[in-house]
Write a protein that binds this DNA or RNA. Structure first.
Lengths: 182, 182
DNA sequence: ATCAGCATGTAAGGCGTTACATGATTCA
DNA sequence: TGAATCATGTAACGCCTTACATGCTGAT
């Protein structure tokens, strides 16, 4: 019960690297991080509010006067300690929820063409994501001297390697199903 | 808004293969399916209740009299149609939520030893799961003549292939981090 | 002028987990 | 006799998404 909310550490992790607004945080989450963690405004803003109360983050005065309010957050010493504690905690929940695999598992209900089609749709998704990740990788390779970038780079190579494995599997699976028909 | 609940089709898919009790369904979900989809009693029983109202499943008389009630469900023609409709729907949400990758991404906050440790913990989890999947694969290879088993088999090979890719990446990532220290 | 993007925040509602409540059967 | 497993179900609660509300800024 309670306190499974990982959005807190995602925000803290981002703020450990640079000061950001809630809007900026959303953009970062929609980038590389989006491949292994999601977050919406409806979770980001309330989290920032609560963490401010707890002293994990602080608002920074905007500087720019006039115009719509813009709240830049920065991480506090307590926030950094909280983040480190989480990093050192050995338990980590890794969850995969693939509707495609569910459809594959129950493929026997339909003709094999339906499953073949579903595999092809999956392949297309994977190829698109792979192209994005390869672009990320190229860009990161230019800035690998920065410590944080080494870690970003590793998450990107993780994505590339697994997506490449997916594509190999797709080809095998299609062949397996076609052969089974004969 | 609403009707994202995939537990319904998971149950329907299982019932398309054999008649089951809620308890049985939970056991199936904790098996192979658990690698790509989760479900608890707190979601299974309410789903069965609602699907019965909608006529997608029906209760079968227990047969065995005396003892604790045991409700065996079977799928109806409407349930089968609902399942087929879902299988033919091209959209499928595939989501990965890996806390390990989150920790990796923010690894720059700590010494590289912490990330190295987190990768090793991940490796152990993957190796354990791989052993289970290989066992499933061996058992399925004996019964591949049954149509449904071909599909179960493919989901298992998907898991094995991706976990093997994970392990290769782990090794590379550890070496990368050790080299970066020098 | 208008539209996209910047920017913050709330409200409703769905989904799902954990814990609880209850009790029978089987096996050591 | 006690523990594990079988078996069903509810209640509380947390988490998150979508949609809504609001309004500025800059480019076309």
């Amino acid at each position: 019960m309670g306190k499974d909310r990982k959005i807190d550490v995602v925000i803290l992790g981002l703020l450990a690297h640079e000061n950001l607004t809630g809007y900026d945080i959303k953009k970062r989450i929609d980038g590389t991080i989006g491949f292994f963690w999601k977050g919406s405004f409806g979770s980001i803003y309330p989290s920032l509010g609560e963490m401010e109360k707890q002293g994990l983050v602080q608002k920074k005065s905007d500087g720019v006067s006039g115009g719509r309010e813009k709240i830049i957050y920065h991480i506090t010493r307590e926030g950094r300690a909280y983040l480190r504690k989480w990093l050192n905690d050995e338990k980590a929940v890794n969850e995969l929820k693939y509707e495609t695999l569910l459809k594959l598992y129950f493929g026997g209900v339909e003709k094999s063409e339906v499953t073949l089609k579903n595999i092809e749709i999956f392949e297309e998704q994977v190829k698109e994501n792979l192209a994005i990740l390869r672009m990320y990788k190229e860009n990161l390779e230019k800035v690998l001297d920065k410590a944080d970038h080494k870690y970003y780079y590793l998450t990107v190579t993780f994505g590339i390697d697994t997506y490449e494995a997916y594509l190999k599997w797709c080809k095998k699976a299609r062949e397996f199903l076609v052969d089974a028909e004969k």
